[in-house]
Computed example of a mutant assay.
Amino acid sequence: MSGKPKLHYFNGRGRMESIRWLLAAAGVEVCLYGSLLFQQVPMVEIDGMKMVQSRAIGNYIAMKYNLYGKDLKERALIDMYVEAVIDLNELLMTHILQPADKREQHFATIVDKATNRYFPVYEKVLKDHGQDFLVGNQFSRADVQLLETLLMAEECKPDILAKFPLLQSFKARISNIPTIKKFLQPGSQRKPPLQEKDLPKVMKIFH
């Protein structure tokens, strides 16, 4: 069964955003639906399946559109890098959901973990690997998800990459890949950061 994948989620980032990024990276147009407005997980209709669980969806899309490395070893590395970046992504995504009196502490946690735990690892990976991409010599899901998280981190703190020149170069390089460049333009299906006015609706989804 062919046709555009159908995305069921609320009209915001949440756990569907990484899936939008992957589909955009693959150059795949999607249909947007909102039938799961008040449920916790995204659902994607693709190839005759109704898929839930973000990681399963991401793996399927990556495999289908050649964003999952060339062999088992590369896939293992991609999984490892994606899982780590998802942890930071979750921190960034839930920042605005924190009670007002805890946001400053949460922000400090994000900056600390990003700059002292996660970004140094990816900076070293890029240095040691010596290639344009995180894994092998081709664009993969790991590159897509890292770029998404880097941009989210910069929304949180614009100078957060100041001490990471290889990540800055990576961001510029991956952002210029045609399908990604298109996704970053105004009018794409990329969602903006959550705003205060969206919180009542979003809290129902995350809780």
Rank of each mutant, 00 (worst) to 15 (best):
V28D: 03
L77G: 01
L72S: 14
R13D: 02
K70D: 11
L37Y: 12
P42I: 04
I19F: 07
K73P: 00
S54V: 02
Y9T: 02
Q39H: 09
E83F: 09
I46W: 13
Y65S: 08
F38G: 01
E29T: 08
L32W: 02
Y60C: 04
R75K: 12
L23F: 03
D79E: 13
P42L: 10
M49T: 07
G27H: 07
E83R: 14
G69N: 08
Y9M: 07
A25F: 04
D47H: 12
G14M: 11
A76N: 06
L23Y: 02
L77E: 11
E17C: 04
K50Y: 10
R20P: 10
Y81Q: 12
I57N: 10
W21T: 02
L23G: 03
A25S: 14
I86T: 04
Y65A: 07
L67P: 14
N59D: 05
I19H: 11
N11T: 00
Y33T: 02
I19K: 12
I46E: 08
Q53Y: 06
A24K: 09
M80F: 09
W21I: 02
A26W: 01
L32P: 03
V52D: 11
K73S: 02
M63F: 04
A24M: 07
Y68F: 13
E74D: 05
E83D: 15
